[in-house]
Design a protein around this nucleic acid. Structure first.
Lengths: 133, 133, 133, 133
DNA sequence: GTGGTCTAGACCACC
DNA sequence: GTGGTCTAGACCACG
């Protein structure tokens, strides 16, 4: 597990952990049954307050994505992959809709919204290719 | 001025007021020089605490979108329309990019992102037409 | 009487009237015994709310600079010139001191303060000559 | 941090806090990255309402002079020193000019203005030395 | 513990 | 009547 935390982007740190964990599971980086790092280890590794990690784990457990294994730690739950994949799509879809709604409510034409999207997608695609290379 | 305030969506009430005011100016519902409703009136109308409205007005004033007319009230500042319009586009564009980035980082293909966008735009367009009719 | 009112400089309008009246008396533009314009006339001329002018006159009366002449209006009081002249010097001197104090407290050296003063005085002298010519 | 608040001088308390903070940063009493006293602590120390302190911090944050460190407190922002120093000079220079302008407009000769300044500077310099000793 | 937000109610200067 | 400021006390999310 390699967490990239940005403490200044307005998204709560625990939420960033949750999302990255779910991504990792959706991608297959974390597989069903795999043992997660302990709260203390992950906190030390990522220089995060253990309370914050604990909170993220609580959230993931509530989402039935991970489950406690008595005396061992937390492991990726059985249905996790399915949940994470659909979760992610749902979440992204919701946020997409909310941005579009706000634009339309603000009087931006659907065509203009599409233009904005095209530009943004183009830019982001380029950027992601850079990072890969 | 007709404000729709949702006190449970995580966005601060004063921030919602600020945004809706800026939208109204960008759209032309509020025009330069126009006298805004008084702090107390707007508060009573929208069932918000006057202090919260005051804070929104403070923010708008700091953004040079409105200005006080001593003893009269607040009026839409001269450069307001330009500021609001560009503000809004910038904001929307940023949020669009952040959603796209997150999707791509999460391993969703650009084509899939485009599909999601198309569906969301379609849905939102229909919904906004309903509200008009 | 020709009043220059700036409603956006933070100084109360009635205070601006008071000061300009006192200046005019100190300068000799207004002489002892002279009849001042009526509240209504001055208000109409300068596009100020009559209440505001009334307040300025009240203040000037309290300072014993003008006095009411029953049925005629307000006239410049006998000791007005002396009062206005010393008032103005005291006031200016106080404000000068407060600016200097703030600068020194803020760690600006006396030499630097003098530099700032010299530049400002130079600039202001030029500007005032322009306006005369 | 030792704040001197005068609640009767017409300047808003929160504004006094803002200015003194900026002075402290310009002077070097507060250095970049330094953790500021918490809203509650500063309020208790200076016998001010926490909301008023909060408002001052809000203003400083808007001026990009301090920034929040989530869950830790507020710290002096990176560009703060530069901003505060230039802010202060600009502010002092403006106020100096306004006093001089008013004097000249009021018919005081430039030489007389210089005299007033010299006396005031002399007096203030002595006073500030006293406070040091 | 921290900052961020909101409510309630008060006083002021100004027009 | 207007905006501007302040106090008091509360709840929230976050670390």
């Amino acid at each position: 597990m390699h967490l990239k935390i940005d403490s200044d982007n307005g998204i709560a740190i625990y939420e960033q952990i949750v999302r990255q964990m779910k991504y990792a599971i959706a991608e297959g980086t974390l597989t069903v049954g795999q043992l997660l790092p302990s709260v203390r280890d992950l906190a030390k590794l990522s220089a995060i307050n253990p309370n914050t990690v604990q909170r993220a784990y609580m959230q993931l457990q509530a989402d039935e994505v991970i489950e406690p294994l008595r005396g061992r730690g937390m492991v990726v739950a059985s249905g996790a992959k399915r949940i994470c994949t659909s979760d992610r799509k749902q979440l992204l879809s919701d946020r997409m809709s909310s941005v579009i709604d706000e634009a339309l409510r603000g009087g931006v034409s659907p065509e203009h919204v599409r233009d904005m999207f095209d530009k943004a997608l183009h830019q982001s695609t380029l950027k992601s290719k850079e990072n890969v290379s």
